[in-house]
Design a protein around this nucleic acid. Structure first.
Lengths: 264, 264
DNA sequence: CGAGTAGTTGACATCTCTCAATGCCGGTGG
DNA sequence: CCACCGGCATTGAGAGATGTCAACTACTCG
């Protein structure tokens, strides 16, 4: 195995596609953030909460932080203290085999939460790193559970639902890894990404991939060459245009027909 | 794809290996069960709880239920009301693709919990069925969350930890599906099973598989013939003896050396 | 300009799947 | 009691998909 190249990149090129907000930031003292005024509130943690609960959330005053491209948010084995909400940018989570093989377990964009995997053991089971300059909210887990204990019952349920959602996310990935071929995998990946971008107001048909072919391959359980060939095959079949990391989907229905995953 | 055979078996043969307790049961009114006196309390839901919390759990008086071999505990889409603890027997959970392909997402034995995947959407994302006559505790989820709201903070944490554990379990499976070959997959499966049996006081080196080759294959992302061939290969390499579903591990270290998964 | 990284593509190797035949076992019914 | 059937497992042979290795291009960074 030689995914080694992807394991510890000295620095990563920064891509500039949807996100302009990553660039100009007051880089000084960690800003405090309020959920109620956040443009991501309907996608992120507060989603589904009632107003008083969101206000309680605000009272926690999450710290905001920047993670530069290639930097690590937490490593495997790190103490579990925070869960993180992505405000802008892209993160990648991965697991390691003893022999150094890496398995990417997820890519996370604005409004998504990472780090919940640490709750079982008190330390993180995966590592998470930024694929581009990324801004996150660090949510102290202990504060969140305190809140759940005191707030209206709904709050407790929110945490549970978040974790359950994570379980479902992994279900789909298992499905994909266990019973799909290369074209189905890549199609599923692109359709999923497209939908997540769309939910955030970006184009569902045209976007920049923030991850390398090797990272996509690791996530989808295939080699980078196979990813590359499958992209070319899709282009030949007129499902999409690809130019390196720039993707334009021409025939969304065609892609979707390749997968038909139910996993509701 | 023709795993169809495994999809809807009319009836299943019952195997008799560790479990004798499945057989004689008062099949009358659903028994109520108390966690504090359960022989599985250190593996199951109460694991890690303090005594007062376990007593609160007892106050819920979970219903006990039998699920016969081949019967379904819940189906994909069913309303999420309970989580289930296996008291004796074996369950299998699986997901469906629209085209009928099945992906087994887990096997569950005594002391393990199933059904948590329903918490996100209020209905189950997977289906669960008994591979042999099985006895379960049905734990009303709403009672559990009520309890979490009132009990000492630890209780809330227990639920979270359970779900986080589920996430980690799926992490390992993803790892396996994403970056291991057939021999590594089967070795990982057998070692894992062996450890779970050992934790329950059964032999770690000799056991009966409750699932078919097709089900193992679906779980591990390979075809039943490949599972069979890999078993034969292990036998030829003197790692184990197999006779249909009876497995005796001869060289546990040899098996473990094939995997070396870290995923802690 | 040279080095390094990422991506693409070809040729070939290898692994796993597919299809098919066979054996084994348990259950059923004559 | 025995013959037969269905389900499960094993095994072989060949096909197909993906991995491996290597060459080449484009681009970025110093």
């Amino acid at each position: 195995m030689t995914v080694a190249a992807a394991t510890q990149p000295a620095a990563r090129t920064v891509h500039i596609m949807p996100a302009a907000h990553t660039r100009q930031l007051t880089p000084v003292a960690p800003l405090k953030t309020s959920c109620s005024s956040c443009h991501l509130r309907d996608l992120c943690l507060p989603c589904g909460m009632n107003t008083p609960d969101v206000e309680r959330l605000d009272s926690l005053m999450f710290g905001r932080r920047r993670v530069l491209a290639g930097q690590t948010l937490y490593r495997e084995g790190d103490k579990f203290q925070f869960i993180y909400a992505v405000r802008a940018g892209t993160l990648k989570s991965s697991l390691m085999l003893a022999d150094g093989r890496e398995q990417v377990s997820g890519f996370h964009i604005a409004g998504e939460l990472v780090g919940l995997d640490g709750a079982a053991q008190g330390h993180h089971a995966s590592a998470t790193m930024a694929l581009e300059d990324t801004e996150i909210c660090a949510i102290p887990y202990s504060h969140l559970t305190d809140l759940a204990a005191n707030a209206s019952g709904g709050m407790q349920h929110i945490i549970t639902r978040l974790m359950s959602r994570e379980i479902m996310r992994e279900h789909s990935l298992m499905m994909l890894l266990g019973s799909m071929n290369a074209e189905e995998r890549l199609a599923a990946f692109l359709v999923n990404l497209s939908q997540r971008y769309a939910a955030r107001g970006y184009s569902e048909r045209e976007f920049h991939l923030r991850m390398s072919r090797a990272e996509i391959g690791s996530y989808l359980g295939m080699k980078l060459e196979t990813v590359s060939r499958t992209f070319s095959a899709f282009q030949a079949q007129r499902f999409l245009d690809v130019d390196k990391r720039h993707v334009r989907i021409i025939d969304m229905d065609g892609l979707k027909r390749r997968i038909e995953v139910q996993v509701h």
